[in-house]
Nucleic acid binder design. Sequence first.
DNA 1: TAAAAACATGCAATCGTTTGCATTGTTTAT
DNA 2: ATAAACAATGCAAACGATTGCATGTTTTTA
Lengths: 335, 335
Amino acid sequence: MMVTINDVAKEANVSASTVSRVLNNTGTISQPTTNTVIRAVKKLGYEPNVLARNFRKKRTRTILILTPNMTNPFYSNIISGICDLSRDMNYSSFVCNTTDETQQIKKTLDMLYKHKADGAILLASEKGQHWLSEYAEEFPIIQCCEYDPDLDISRVSIDNYHAAVETVRYLIALGHKKIGMISSVNKYLSTENRLKGYKDALREAGLESTDRYVAFAGKDYNYQSGCRAAEKLLTQSDRPTALFCISDVLAIGAVNTAKIMGMCIPEDISIVGFDDVEQTSMFTPKITTVAQPCYSLGQKATELLCRKLEQNESIPLETILPYRMIIRDSTGPRP
Amino acid sequence: MMVTINDVAKEANVSASTVSRVLNNTGTISQPTTNTVIRAVKKLGYEPNVLARNFRKKRTRTILILTPNMTNPFYSNIISGICDLSRDMNYSSFVCNTTDETQQIKKTLDMLYKHKADGAILLASEKGQHWLSEYAEEFPIIQCCEYDPDLDISRVSIDNYHAAVETVRYLIALGHKKIGMISSVNKYLSTENRLKGYKDALREAGLESTDRYVAFAGKDYNYQSGCRAAEKLLTQSDRPTALFCISDVLAIGAVNTAKIMGMCIPEDISIVGFDDVEQTSMFTPKITTVAQPCYSLGQKATELLCRKLEQNESIPLETILPYRMIIRDSTGPRP
DNA sequence: TAAAAACATGCAATCGTTTGCATTGTTTAT
DNA sequence: ATAAACAATGCAAACGATTGCATGTTTTTA
């Protein structure tokens, strides 16, 4: 029923080892023999048994994708990039929701030890997870988007600091002087860097940076907590005329809250998001935002991981992809 | 380095077969021996080598998930259900974007033949794909949400026909007489059934059902084509006062288009979506919609597939899960 | 032209589990 | 009391591919 390497060997009048060498391009096989083998393979429609091969080579050709929540469009776009490229590279990819819980993450990564996967891509490592190194020492791991800068684990990301600086400079150029920010209570490096960029850009322009203008949403950037944060900022008598939000969903929350409070956007207040998920352009007004190249980030991470897996090539510690400001309708000159 | 079954056997003073039998609950092993073996397993921290086991058993414990596009939140919610449950059942799941292209689907399903996966869940089989049966005869396959009723392949879905009927009845109860529909040009059964339900509900109420009130968006339900379809319907002099859209994204497009045309929702026009993706409640007005239990649909499909895989149990051809109408702010009495 | 190097191939072990068959006691049924 | 059935275990052969080592042949080198 199933054609094995021995059937091919018999058909081609050579040994199984020869067939194996032809198929794997290992060892030295003469051209005539190679041809004979290839002909036999074609004739019998032979496909190497992946299970046997994996077993022998102790490799699964599977990569793990750890995400807090694949339902979040930001992550699903990255995952899409990973899945598509890994498929092309003949790898399977296994998506795991971890809800950012250490227990879940460890349990998932333990699949590496159990020979269920060869490597992993982490979409959102929080800072301070020193124990990650233990896995990274034994297995190839890539951090995508979020990473701990203190760990010696490869990462691919954008320059969050400068993205924030550029965004705030843009708001300043529009004449805004009272610029607020909606951040989050999570432990992601991007969050930290965007906050730093925001403050530095203000300082650079000689503007005060006050805690009254910074609010923190929940760690999962959810819509409701964006609304609450916006409310907190906008109910102040001396309220900001512009808001920089660290995610689009938060920005949408802020826009809705501002609307409910009777403001017009962008006439009364400018609001900027981050990520450029699809919703931003389905929303009215269309949200000005900083686009992350999600799909490419996923692809790049995959490419690096595969290179590491295939040739144990040493890969760069840090890969930075370009972000892009997209100016839409939610920002305008200072009222 | 790696602890094998032989190490355990030695430690427990039994043969490898005995250890294997204890671990797999096969054959007849006495209680004392079982205990000794279990103790040895614990002591050595033995974990069976998945690769060897898969090889021997000719199984991968991997399931394929075929989706047109995992970036679509409707699908990503289903996939989430599949991934989570399959992980709990000790299966890996492999998500593949197929963009609904036959070539891609076949190529992906061929992984079954190549022993890269044991079974598959299809999230969106179009009607008329008879060749699916060839795969289904050899491997367990479940159709989730969309399915071809003529094929003898298990499916889990909601009752789209009655969901549509109920929705249109609701609009009629609000007093609407001119009710339009935004459908799509795809070949999904759900699309067909929702259209049928729409027409039947109108007829039942003695209302005319005219082609002028039905517009077709692109096959991927994308926002832009929703806008265009809405425009087509609403520029008629005798335009509908209510719109039933077969997806939330289309409904959002319709709402935006209506707004641009100067209408108020729901005062001037009522609009209903379908699926209940997260965006519906982030949008103003919040969209009235029919909720599909996406996560549960994914879980159910997984449960059935696993049952089939594990015990070759015969599973029901059809499983229907309940939908739920969610009335929000985009619908109101006839103007 | 002899020795060394390179090439081409086959043999057989190996990867770690599972499982059919054989073996040895121990019950049970007649 | 004896055959038949069963329980508990071990032996060794798979599963299908890869690979170190051995062997024979050709080519290169000095």
